[in-house]
Amino acid sequence: MTPRDDSDANSNRWSDLDRPPLNAVALRRALVRNGGHDGLWCDVDVVERTGSTNSDLVALAAAGKAEEGAVLVAEEQDAGRGRLDRRWTAPARSGLFFSVLLKPTGVPVERWGWLPLLTGVAVAAGLSRAAGVETALKWPNDLLATVGGTERKVGGILAERAGPDAVVVGIGINVTLREDELPVPGAGSLALAGAVTTDRDTILRAVLRSLEQWFEKWRRVEGDPAASGLQEAYAAGCSTLGRTVRAELPGGESITGEAVAVDRDGRLVLATAEGVQQPVGAGDIVHLRPAGSPENE
């Protein structure tokens, strides 16, 4: 995968002692086994700055310059994207901003919608293991942690098709952001949530190893969410379940109900006041909010 830019690690390594750069060489040594032949990850590139790692990796895949298992990490993003093209920016080296190229070979396309949920489960497990922070999953793509007794968003996930047989999954995690650096009041960071370490090399290795384990487990059973244990694991970590929420749909419509399950297609099932169980897919909604919250929250 090209190009590679490790200039930040070489020329500015000690420019911010509180936020040292990632060690690209050590990351490749730890994650790329036998040249990429003995595991999922085939390459780990760290660039100093980019607009969006997802956009870059989708373009590299389209040009035939990235293979399955490619990982692209940016020390800083100035045009990071979330769902519905929402923007996400953060100070340099304050978080982990990376994308991975996956090919769900043998998995029916209708099950590919589980990839963001699978990634959430994997990231939560990796953060618990490496940083000692217990994160909850807000359906469909947010990572929450408790800061001062309140759940705050510390990360997000974005999956995009990259051709007929591949998906690029982007992950953003706020690691060392301070209160005065948070983009919105509802945001948080691992540091604010009491992480036992904010070493980004350690956290990234743990997250990628967890993602590899979950992806291979899921792919081995052709993406079956029950057989892989994914459906059960996601439900166990999903803070949305059991709460009354409002799913805002395109065109100004909305559905309000208690979130009672995540079905086999990865959709959130809402039990409405009319006694109807209504599934909603991630692609169907504009926002998912607590019932009764302001529309501009």
Rank of each mutant, 00 (worst) to 15 (best):
T176H: 00
E274Q: 14
G292F: 07
P104A: 08
P250W: 07
G237K: 10
A291D: 13
V167A: 04
L115M: 12
A145H: 01
T256R: 07
P21N: 09
S52D: 10
D18C: 02
A195H: 00
P185R: 06
S55Q: 11
S293T: 05
G188A: 05
G64W: 06
A193F: 00
A63V: 09
R219L: 10
C238D: 00
L84E: 01
A131T: 02
T89Y: 03
S128E: 09
C238I: 01
N296D: 11
Q278L: 13
D142Y: 03
A233H: 03
T135I: 01
C238M: 03
G120M: 09
R246I: 06
R13S: 14
P104H: 03
V280G: 02
E253A: 11
L27E: 04
T119E: 03
I285V: 14
T244W: 02
I285H: 03
W218Y: 10
L17P: 07
Y234R: 10
F98V: 01
Q278K: 12
E216A: 11
S239E: 13
Q77L: 10
E75W: 00
E253Y: 09
G251E: 12
L211V: 06
G64K: 07
L31R: 04
L31E: 07
D56F: 05
R220A: 15
E75C: 05
V280H: 08
V196E: 15
R219A: 11
S55C: 09
N34Y: 12
A227K: 15
L192H: 00
P290L: 15
G283A: 12
D224N: 12
V107F: 13
G252H: 09
D180I: 06
T150C: 01
G120W: 02
R264E: 15
L117V: 03
V196C: 10
G172L: 07
R209E: 15
R205D: 01
S52R: 08
K153I: 00
